[in-house]
Every structure is written in structure tokens, then in C-alpha cells.
């Protein structure tokens, strides 16, 4: 990977030269422009948050900026949207749980599978390893849309050859299996690519020394490679978490009409269409759904950026 640096990390050059150049380039106008754009970028989200805290009559009567004049705030929108109420009978709480129950395995399972595959492709030499890796890389290009219909068929009907069931139908009402497996499948190409790139940079000497000591692949994987690959695994985990938590397409396809297991994105997309005029509730619901990714994002931004750079600047 190239010597990319992240946010406030310093360029790995002699401090004096770097900062001299930096000082020469910094200008108050640049700072001013950045501050203006930052404010512009943040205002829409602020508007959502403020609206979600206004009483229903106020929120639907005038713009959210009036809240700073009339000073009427309430948390009741949140309790109403969580459990459901007079306007929107169904609460978001169930869907929040669904998002959580969908996301955790949909991150952990592909992570485990991809880490193993990446190890095998990087450190167990065999004919066709390069071909497999390139194929896997190329699969990133296939739009999900190409896979949805046949995959749904496979899940619902299973796969039979001459009446003999090879793969049984998967899932059923009230189960998450279809969502977990679909997310795992779709995550693999990027996951294997990212983790493989990281793993293949582990010094060869280290691996050879382990083999000399008589360690087999299972032990090398567990005791040497896995601990070293933690940064790559962490950045992919954040990626996958955000992707699954925010996904609408896979959720609609495999749980669209099934409120028992559907995530928050499906709920929000529906209430935006049906109860769009109940601004105070729709905004509260939206804020509930973006809270978790925002926390993860701000807490683990460093890992996220690292993964982003490894995935896209890789050249």
C-alpha cells in the first residue's frame, strides 16, 4: 500500500520541512471556505434532529429553525415512534431489534469465511490460486441486481436434481437465514480482496520460521496470521456493519413483506411514503436509525478511513 496518511496524522517527512510547506500553503480564505461548506453540509442533519424534537403542531406548521425562537422542545415524538401511536400504529422498536439481529451475524459470518479464504489464497500455494483470487476480485463488479431473483428462487424452493434435494429451501416466516446468507454472499468479494491484500504483506520469513517449527496451516492461521490481520479485519467489519445496517435493496428483496424480520430501512422507506406528512415522527424514526452508525462512525473513523483507502487507492 502506498504511504497514505489519514486525517491529522503527519506526513512522514522531516518535521521542519513539512510544516514549513504547510505554513506557506495555509490561508485564512481556505479555512473560511471550508467552514462555510462544513456548515452547509451539517445543516440538513441538524434540521432533522431539531424537527424530531418539536411538538407535532409546531413541526408541521413552520420550519425547524423557528424552534430556536419559540423554544418548544419535546421528546414525546421518540416515545411515540418507538412503540407506535395514534398516527403511525407500528413502532420502530421491533425494526431496530431486527436491524441489530440481521447485522451482527451478517458481519461476523462473512468476516470469518473471508479471513480463512484470504489466508488460503495468500499462504497455501496451489495451482489456480491466482485465478481464484482474480475471479473473486472481478465478482465485485457484478451488481447485486444480477443475483437477486435467482437467489430468492433458490432460497424459497431449494435446489433439486432429478427430485433429489441437494440444497433444501432456506428460511421461512420469522427467520433471518435468508438475509444473513445473502449479506454474507454479497460481502465476500470485497472482504476477501481487502483482507488478502493485507495478509499477503506479512513477511515471508515469519511464515517460514513457523513452518520450520513444525506448525501446520491451522496453527499458523490461528496464532500468527489472525492476530496480525486484526486492523484489516476491523476496517472491513466497520464497512460491512454500515453497509448491512443501511441496506435497503437486500432487505426489501428477502424480507420486504415480512415486518417480523425487516430492518429499520424498510420501515422508514414505508412510513416516508405513507405518513410523510407526519414530519415530527418520520424525522424521529430516521434519527433513531442513523444514531447507531453515527456512533460507530465517530468512534472508529480511523479504521474506516484505513479500509476505504486500502480498498480504493490500492493501485
Amino acid at each position: 500500500m502506498s504511504a497514505t496518511t489519514i486525517s491529522d496524522e503527519k506526513v512522514a517527512a522531516p518535521e521542519s520541512v513539512s510544516s514549513a510547506v504547510h505554513r506557506n500553503l495555509s490561508s485564512p480564505w481556505a479555512s473560511f471556505a471550508v467552514i462555510v461548506i462544513t456548515i452547509l453540509w451539517t445543516i440538513p442533519t441538524l434540521g432533522l434532529f431539531v424537527t424530531s424534537l418539536r411538538p407535532s403542531d409546531k413541526a408541521n406548521q413552520n420550519g425547524w429553525w423557528n424552534a430556536f425562537i419559540d423554544h418548544t422542545f419535546t421528546a414525546s415524538n421518540y416515545s411515540e415512534v418507538l412503540t407506535g401511536g395514534a398516527v403511525i400504529p407500528q413502532g420502530i422498536a421491533n425494526f431496530f431489534i431486527n436491524s441489530l439481529v440481521i447485522t451482527i451475524p451478517a458481519v461476523l459470518i462473512p468476516l470469518a469465511i473471508a479471513t480463512m479464504a484470504a489466508y488460503a489464497l495468500a499462504w497455501i500455494p496451489f495451482r489456480g490460486a491466482t485465478f481464484l483470487f482474480v475471479t473473486c476480485f472481478a465478482l465485485q463488479v457484478v451488481p447485486l441486481q444480477m443475483a437477486l431473483l435467482p437467489l430468492l428462487q433458490l432460497f424459497n424452493k431449494g435446489w433439486k436434481v432429478n427430485g433429489v434435494s441437494i440444497i433444501p429451501p432456506i428460511g421461512g416466516h420469522g427467520t433471518y437465514y435468508q438475509l444473513w446468507i445473502a449479506h454474507a454472499m454479497f460481502a465476500l468479494p470485497l472482504a476477501i480482496f481487502l483482507i488478502h491484500n493485507f495478509m499477503s504483506q506479512i513477511p515471508k520469513d515469519l511464515m517460514e520460521a513457523a513452518v520450520m517449527d513444525g506448525a501446520g496451516h491451522f496453527r499458523i492461521f490461528r496464532t500468527i496470521v489472525l492476530p496480525l490481520a486484526v486492523p484489516a479485519i476491523a476496517s472491513f467489519a466497520i464497512f460491512q456493519f454500515l453497509w448491512v445496517w443501511n441496506d435497503l435493496l437486500v432487505a426489501l428483496t428477502f424480507a420486504g413483506g415480512n415486518d417480523q424480520v425487516a430492518p429499520m430501512t424498510v420501515y422508514l422507506s414505508n412510513i416516508k411514503g405513507t405518513y410523510g406528512s407526519a414530519l415530527h415522527l418520520v424525522t424521529a424514526g430516521a434519527f433513531v436509525s442513523i444514531l447507531m452508525p453515527l456512533i460507530v462512525f465517530f468512534a472508529l473513523q480511523r479504521f474506516f478511513v484505513r479500509g476505504l483507502l486500502a480498498g480504493s487507492v490500492k493501485g
Binding site: I37, P44, V282, A286
Partner: peptide, 29 residues
């Protein structure tokens, strides 16, 4: 060319964490 870059960077980067559905509701407003 800025001195304290991490705050504006985080705030402009933040929408990346928000779902398209959430973003649509934010902009619908």
C-alpha cells in the same frame, strides 16, 4: 491548507455513515 482539519473533515465525511433512506428523509425535509 487548514490548521485544525479534523473537525470539518469528520463533519463533511459524516453523511457516509447515513443510509440512503435516512439521507432521503433528511433532504425530504
Amino acid at each position: 491548507r487548514m490548521k485544525h482539519e479534523s473537525i470539518p473533515k469528520s463533519l463533511i465525511f459524516m453523511p457516509m455513515a447515513i443510509s440512503f433512506v435516512g439521507a432521503s428523509i433528511i433532504w425530504g425535509l
